[in-house]
Amino acid sequence: MKQFILKRLGLSVVTVFLVAVIVFFLTHILPGNVARQYLGRGATEEDLAEFRRVFGLDRSLLAQLFGWIGDLLHGDLGQSMQYRGPVSDILLPAIGYSSKLACVAFFLIVPISIAGGVIAAMNRGKKIDRAITVGGLSAAVIPEFVWAIVLVLTVGVTFQIFPVSAFPDEDNRSILNQIWHLILPSISLLLVLFGYIARITRAGVIEALESDYMRTAVLKGMTRRKAVSKHVLRNALLPTIAVIASQIPYLIGGLIAVEIVFNYPGFGTILKGAVDARDYSVLQSGVIVSSLVIVVFQLIADILFAVLNPRIRQKVTE
């Protein structure tokens, strides 16, 4: 098992490194004179040279790359071109905000979608099954930022059930109130991801319901309910875990879009600002951070999958 985790860990490191290299070259190959863009037409040659020196743009590409990666390894994300301050000062609080949103979204989406899938499977062919499957798929067709806008306009503005801003006012920033404010943005993500996760869960549960071991359990005299909780769920949720993990990048993409609509000072909003301002150092670090998150979750999912599945667990311990 240890070996398996180490191997996966190694793979993850390689992945992140490759992402770093690719991101670096992409941003540096982009056309445009960075210094000139920042300093404007009026800047003198000296100003430009100074700018390049400060941001290390006067070195060779490779030197820049290794310098940047070296800094990253020391936890130094570099200097923001736009804000003229350390990138970490800008990114870290934003990441904090985004994590809150992601947590709320995750804890809303996963149980609800899985429950939906299980309910659909248990009532296969009935109305409720059709409602969940068809409803889920239709909802997923609409992008999350459109949902976000629709939600803001309906339950937010018209019915005023949920606050339209994702960020509470300064006078009440209790945890509960923060969560309350994050529910609406999470729902817009839920609407998009629900159909997908529910469908996979449903398929897994149906397969397990029709399995021979389920038949064995029922023929032992177990009630269906008990047999489902003891024999179906664990096996059925295995594939679902893998699917949820594979949806993490999507969730992150969705977060970015939703944050922008709700004007939430998270990672996505900062990243968008960086794109608009061509703030390469923030952009680069942002991408690295998100790839890190994706890789970590994939790793967690893989390990979970192996722990729950004796066949794989045994293979990896050998």
């Binding site: 399995s211 021979d212 071991y213 064995t216 023929l219 032992k220 003891k230 664990r234 066949r311």
Partner: peptide, 20 residues
Amino acid sequence: RRSAISMVYQNPATALNPTI
């Protein structure tokens, strides 16, 4: 089924739950 009738069928390998 709990007390008086039991069944054994083909494919014993799949009749057992793989994760228990």
